[in-house]
Simulated scan of single mutants.
Amino acid sequence: MKLNEYLNKLWRADYPAPQHEEAEASWERFASKAFEKPTKVVSWKTHWKYFSAVAASVMLVIAALQWAINAGAGADFLLVENTDETIRVFTLPDHSVVNLLPGSTLHYAENFQRDRTIKLEGEAYFEVTKDAHAPFSVACNRTITTVLGTSFNIKSLAGGGIEVALYEGSVKMEVEGAEQDWMLSPGELFVYRDAKAEVLPFRSRQRAAPLYVDFEKASLAEIAAYIQQAYGYTVMGESGILEERVTMRIRKNEPLDNIMKTITTIYDVRSNIDTLRKEITLTHER
């Protein structure tokens, strides 16, 4: 299958079945600019707007294009999906961290450290490792989000819309068919819905991911208080245990068993969880 056929197939995949005519028209507009050979020499000075429009269209789908090229060449692409009811956290080969929400999926190339391109369906929070030589791009619902190193959340909306919330760093947003792009600053929300794009402020300007609770040299008594608030369990400990200090990040909706396993491993203690009384007792290893 030829390259343009691969790209055609990928392009149409972003359109729901009822929008077949819209997908056809959109593809024809792009293909006529990207694949047709010019019939005459065109002056750059007199037709710079035309070339700019073509370049914008090509750049907008560069992630999809790379995906199609590699797929056609038999390159390995990896699928990550979250079929659980809690957030799935995993680390990409470049050490960027992805928090994939339930029901979401993404594809990334096996050679991701050289080609940091992702195709997302659903919602995910990203903490991107900086690499000035390899921009990090996320394709979702006919938009491209490009960053060098930052923290942001992407959520696809029903009907082909998208929301991008920026917490740290900067990102550039590109939309299929739009002549402009949008640069976001921390605390800004990009919304694309019903073929309209806007940038809005949002309340949270914190640097830490909203999906986490951070503890910096906190006592286990402080973490015990958080567990009681978030999970409804009272944590008790033998003499001196709750005075121990730890630096750790707890993901919201993290299973309580995982949190206790981390604590018991760090301090070489045992935990007894009484689900009926909703109590946790920490004791020293004998």
Rank of each mutant, 00 (worst) to 15 (best):
N8A: 14
N258Q: 13
I144D: 04
L3C: 05
A134P: 04
I162E: 02
G187M: 05
W27L: 05
P135E: 05
I223E: 00
E243C: 08
D131S: 08
D115N: 14
T283V: 10
T247K: 03
E168T: 13
V199R: 00
I241Y: 02
I118V: 14
E222I: 01
D76S: 11
R116E: 06
E163M: 08
D274C: 10
I62A: 15
H133N: 14
A56P: 04
L3Y: 12
L92D: 01
G122E: 03
K172I: 13
V269C: 14
N70H: 12
A124S: 04
A55S: 12
R203I: 09
L10E: 15
S271R: 01
T129A: 12
A132V: 11
R203Q: 14
L157S: 05
N272M: 03
V147F: 08
D257K: 12
Y226N: 03
T283L: 06
L65S: 13
V58G: 07
E163A: 09
I162D: 01
P201C: 05
L79D: 09
W182M: 04
A68C: 10
D76I: 11
V235W: 00
S151Q: 04
F51G: 04
T264W: 02
I250T: 00
R114N: 15
F126Y: 05
Y226M: 08
I162S: 02
N99M: 08
V235S: 02
E198W: 06
A23N: 06
E254F: 04
E123Q: 13
A64I: 07
N153D: 15
T105R: 13
S156N: 11
F190Y: 04
T143Y: 02
K49V: 09
N70T: 09
R249K: 12
R88D: 03
A139F: 07
Y226L: 04
S271N: 08
G149L: 06
K252G: 09
T265A: 14
K40I: 10
D76P: 00
E279S: 11
E21L: 14
G237Q: 07
E174S: 14
I273M: 13
E179Y: 06
N272E: 11
K196M: 12
E24C: 07
P102A: 01
Y125H: 04
L100V: 00
S104K: 01
T91M: 07
Y108M: 07
L120E: 00
V191T: 10
L65P: 02
P201F: 03
H47Y: 07
A139T: 07
M173W: 00
P93R: 05
V199L: 02
E244I: 06
D268W: 11
C140G: 06
L256D: 00
A55P: 03
E238M: 04
V191Q: 03
S137H: 12
V61R: 00
A124I: 00
Y6N: 10
G122R: 01
R88H: 10
K2T: 11
T117M: 12
E285A: 12
A25I: 15
E179Q: 09
K33W: 10
W11K: 01
I259K: 00
K261D: 15
A209S: 15
A195W: 11
V175H: 02
R249I: 02
P16S: 08
S156A: 15
V246I: 15
G149M: 05
A23M: 08
T247D: 03
V269K: 05
F152D: 04
M1P: 01
E188T: 09
I227D: 01
N253S: 10
H107W: 14
L282V: 08
S185T: 15
D84C: 05
